[in-house]
Design a protein around this nucleic acid. Structure first.
Lengths: 199, 199
DNA sequence: GTCTATAATACGATAGAC
DNA sequence: GTCTATCGTATTATAGAC
C-alpha cells in the first residue's frame, strides 16, 4: 500500500521532530539533520509539509501534545489518588531525564521559549498542547472530587512546577529538584483534597 | 577615557544578549542582530569575546544571573514574610510578561533548553546562574527561620514553579497560571513556615 | 508522485584596511 | 587597536530528473 508507506515516513518525520526539538529546541534543529534522523529523503519533507519548517513544527507540537496527553491520562487512570498521580509525573520525568543523560526534556517548552515571540502559529500550537495537558490533569483531579475551578487552578500549578523542575534539572544535570518539587506538589494536592473528600 | 568606552560597548553587548536570548533563545539569535541591537560594530564582538558566540553566551548567563539574583535578594529584603516574598516573585513576573506582550521570559531557561545537550560550557554557566538564584532564595528562607535543608528544598520548589509558570504563561499569552501558582506556592511556604515560627 | 541536485540566503568567524 | 569587507559553511526552500 503506497498510502501506508507515505503515512510511515510522515510519522517518522514527526517523531524525529519530537526527539530533536526536546533536546535542541526548534531554532537549533536543522531540517537536514531532521530528515537524516527520520531516515527520510530530503525532498519528502516538503512533500508532506509544504509549509516548510513552521508547518512541520506546528504538527510536531500537535503530535507530541497528543502523545504526552495519553501518558498523563494513563497516570491518573492508574493512580486514582490524585496526589500520588501528580507525584508520579515528577518521578517518571526524573527517570526519563537521567536515562537520557538529561537530554530528553519537554519539546513544547523548548519550542515555546524559542519562538513564542516570533511565530504566532507555532505559539498557538504550543499553547494548545499545554492546554490539552492541563485539561487532562484537571479531568483527573475532577474525577477524584475536585470542583472545576479548583481542578483547573491546581492543574496549572502542577504542570508549572513540573515544567520548571525539568528546566532546572537539565541545567544542573541532577534530578534533585524534581524529587523536591514532587514532595511539595504532592503535599499541596493532599491539602487541597482534604476539602473534597466527603468523609 | 578609552577604557570606560570599551567597558560600555562590552556591557551593551551583554545587555543585548540578555534581551535577545530571553525572547528568542540562543540558537534563534544571530550575532549580527545582536550587535545591531547593542549599537556596536560587528568586529567589536570578537574583540571583546574572542571565543565567539559560545563565550558571549556564557558571559551573558553570568551577567543575567547576577542581575536577577540582586532582584530576588531585594524582594526577600523588602518582604520579610517569606511566603509573601515568594508570591511577589510570581506577581512581579506576571507584570513583566504582560508589559512585554509575553516576550520577556527567562534568559537562563531559554538558553538551557537550547543548548543543555550540545555545549557543556554553556550548560554549566546556566547551572551556575540557577544555583545562585536558589542560594539567594534559600538564604531568604533561612533568614526567616527555615532549617538549611528545608530552605534548599523549598527554594528548588519555588523556582521550579516560577520558571514553569513563565513558560506556560508565554505559550498561552495569559498570566493566569502565574497567579494560580503564586497562590499555591504561597500556601506551601506558609504551611512549611508553621514549623519554624517559635510562637 | 519521489527523490536528487541546486539555488538563495543567513550564519559564525576572520583578515586586512585605517 | 577599531572596525569594514569578505570567506566558507550551513541553513531553508525549490526545481527538475526519474
Amino acid at each position: 500500500m503506497t498510502d501506508a508507506k507515505a503515512m510511515d515516513t510522515r510519522q517518522r518525520l514527526l517523531a524525529a521532530g519530537e526527539r530533536l526539538f526536546r533536546t535542541q529546541g526548534y531554532a537549533g534543529t536543522g531540517l537536514k539533520e531532521l530528515t537524516e534522523v527520520a531516515g527520510a529523503p530530503w525532498g519528502s519533507l516538503y512533500h508532506f509539509f509544504p509549509g516548510g519548517k513552521e508547518q512541520l513544527g506546528a504538527e510536531v507540537m500537535r503530535y507530541a501534545g497528543a502523545l504526552y496527553a495519553r501518558g498523563i491520562a494513563a497516570t491518573f487512570m492508574r493512580f486514582t489518588d490524585p496526589a500520588e498521580a501528580a507525584e508520579r509525573m515528577f518521578l517518571s520525568e526524573a527517570s526519563v531525564l537521567s536515562a537520557s543523560d538529561y537530554r530528553d526534556g519537554c519539546p513544547i517548552a523548548s519550542v515555546t521559549l524559542d519562538i513564542a515571540s516570533t511565530s504566532e502559529d507555532l505559539r498557538a500550537a504550543c499553547a494548545e498542547a499545554f492546554a490539552s495537558w492541563l485539561q487532562t490533569i484537571a479531568a483527573g483531579l475532577a474525577a477524584a472530587g475536585a470542583p472545576d475551578e479548583t481542578a483547573k487552578a491546581l492543574a496549572g500549578f502542577i504542570l508549572s512546577a513540573l515544567e520548571g523542575a525539568i528546566v532546572l534539572a537539565r541545567a544542573a544535570k541532577n534530578p534533585a529538584v524534581l524529587l523536591q518539587s514532587a514532595r511539595f506538589v504532592r503535599a499541596a494536592v493532599e491539602r487541597e483534597a482534604e476539602g473534597w473528600t466527603s468523609r
